[in-house]
């Protein structure tokens, strides 16, 4: 596992997602209301399109979530599980702040 610098924390708009290209992987980064940063794979497993970073960020029973912008399936930002269809999951990436820098852990 290596930590890869992605962008500045100020590049993450509050309660929205952005997508980062890490190697050839698309990683969706989300900054939630409490300031925390979460990272999921950007591929929406239902549609096959790389769009999860463009979903609406919110909560379901307190758990931070994103809803696919195509067909609105909701995914946990913490576990990557789809909360509407539990057998479906998307990859979760470790993410941390180094000062103002957002870093994502990827296996090389």
């Amino acid at each position: 596992m290596t930590w890869v610098n992605v962008c500045g924390y100020q590049n993450l708009p509050p309660e929205r997602g952005v997508c980062a290209l890490v190697g050839d992987r698309q990683v969706a980064l989300f900054r939630t209301h409490d300031g925390a940063v979460h990272a999921l794979g950007n591929l929406d497993p239902f549609s096959g399109a790389y769009v999860l970073s463009r979903g609406i960020v919110g909560t379901r029973k307190g758990e931070p979530t994103v809803a696919s912008p195509l067909h609105k399936q909701v995914f946990s930002l913490v576990t990557g599980h789809c909360l509407d269809e539990p057998e479906i999951t998307v990859p979760v990436y470790h993410v941390r702040l180094d000062g103002d820098l957002v870093q994502v852990a990827v296996s090389v």
Binding site: E15, T32, G55, I56, G58, T59, K61, P64, A67, V74
Partner: peptide, 10 residues
């Protein structure tokens, strides 16, 4: 309550 979702936010 909470922080909203894809239904109430839009």
């Amino acid at each position: 309550q909470g922080r909203g979702c894809d239904i109430c936010k839009p």
